[in-house]
Design a protein around this nucleic acid. Structure first.
Lengths: 254, 254
DNA sequence: CGCAATATTGACCACTCTCAATGAGGGTGG
DNA sequence: CCACCCTCATTGAGAGTGGTCAATATTGCG
């Protein structure tokens, strides 16, 4: 009995760790999902072999089968525009989900490419849907997550519609900072896995503008930047530049 | 019996009509929801007294209780920005839902104001969630709708990040055109219920720019515009200006 | 080591914003 | 019914942010 109990405890713990590792806590933690339910959720999650830099997790038009959670590394999603160019729609760091935009049409409207060696969890969507029909808590979380995604996009809209180049880049840096911090990494010292091109594309700016802004920020003593390595030296002043009131803000969603 | 059958038929028909009227077909039609389920859905929908021009359906920060479907009229949603201004996040025409961005935080991140006398259906969200846990078809539709919303926002992102003022306004007009057409109204002849200010705000442009573009489009023979009344006279060429390949496009989502 | 891709920096210019004035509706009250 | 006002829309002139083009520097990779 003792043994059994212990074994169960270990098992549950492993599940929690795996789940956390997959960063699916956002799927299960916030509202009550009990141990059995957590295990059911864990059962449908597949681990995939790591995706190498430049490889695609999925391509535009691929039929939709699963959503993905980044475990480590980073992914960029981008969509082709009518005029043949592409628009970067997001950078996905550990703990973040991607693929939710494919549910409606059952195929991926954007492609997902690894910015570095990246490991992800794959969550078959039909099984998730099935499961969430049985677990109200899970259904609720799923809806919350999708709502959060909508909110995120809306805050990006604001950024693009109203903010200057300076404010946009500052906001992106603050967003990365806060997202890294949430995952236990340094909020002031991190590597940009994406190119200047990706950043410019994402923020609706020319590469040259992004480059100039990085040097300007550095000249103004806000940060040190050396190629892909960024070290924010004056977070409060960077927040001022972004015009986001200090403390936790919408930038969490950028 | 005859009587009973007839009565049932009428009842179902009424439900369908009401449902269509509420434009909740998107919630139930596309995938199989049977008559009984349709009735259950219909039962939780509330009709509200019409909202007059300038009145709010909800305010920023209001606790989230329901999502809304526009039956007739039009609604604009807008969010306050940090610097005290506001950002218009969407125009909602008959048949379109609003409030999905409030699910995550349980309060409305944006306000909804009627642009004209507008009637809406109110769908209490807790009851919808409850119902969709029992009806897999409904759950699926709900997720699809939210995914569609995400897709919509992403196409807007592209608009704001990459397109010129000209392309933006053309895209908005085409979007309105196609949405009116879907509802059985003329795709070339309609009233703009929103002000130039709202349009500019939404598209990330100054009012003056919007105004100048309207006159330019008119001078170029693309449309006639007189205050709020727009008559598109050269749809193909307007599409060319928007740089959206002809036929049905993403603009449905703008 | 050399090529290719990515970043940085500079000069110039265009698009769009800002500021300012005028014009057009729409409602209210005299 | 008209005068008035207030909001909204239009139009013009000037300025500035950010884009484009081009050259150079740096890094990574075969």
């Amino acid at each position: 009995m003792m043994h059994a109990a212990s074994s169960t405890a270990v098992k549950l713990d492993q599940i929690k760790v795996a789940c956390k590792d997959c960063n699916l806590f956002q799927l299960c933690l916030p509202v009550g999902i009990d141990a059995r339910e957590l295990e059911e959720l864990d059962n449908i999650i597949k681990r995939r072999r790591p995706v190498k830099r430049g490889e695609h997790l999925f391509q535009v038009g691929d039929t939709f089968q699963a959503i993905y959670a980044v475990r480590s590394g980073s992914i960029k999603t981008y969509a082709p525009t009518e005029d043949g160019h592409e628009q970067v729609t997001g950078f996905h760091l550990p703990g973040e989900l991607l693929g939710l935009d494919a549910i409606n049409l059952q195929h991926h409207p954007c492609a997902a490419k690894a910015l570095e060696t990246t490991s992800v969890c794959e969550i078959p969507f039909d099984r998730l849907e099935e499961l969430s029909a049985r677990l109200p808590g899970l259904q609720h979380q799923l809806l919350r997550i999708m709502s959060k995604e909508i909110l995120h996009d809306q805050s990006l809209l604001m950024l693009l519609a109203k903010k200057s180049a300076e404010e946009r880049l500052a906001a992106l840096l603050l967003s990365l900072s806060s997202r890294y911090q949430q995952r236990g990494f340094s909020p002031t010292d991190f590597y940009l896995s994406m190119s200047r091109n990706d950043i410019g594309n994402y923020l609706g700016l020319a590469v040259e503008t992004v480059s100039r802004l990085f040097t300007r920020f550095q000249d103004e003593g806000l940060l040190n930047v050396q190629r892909k390595h960024v070290c924010i030296t004056d977070l409060p002043r960077l927040r001022a530049v972004a015009h986001t009131p200090n403390g936790r803000t919408d930038t969490d969603n950028i």
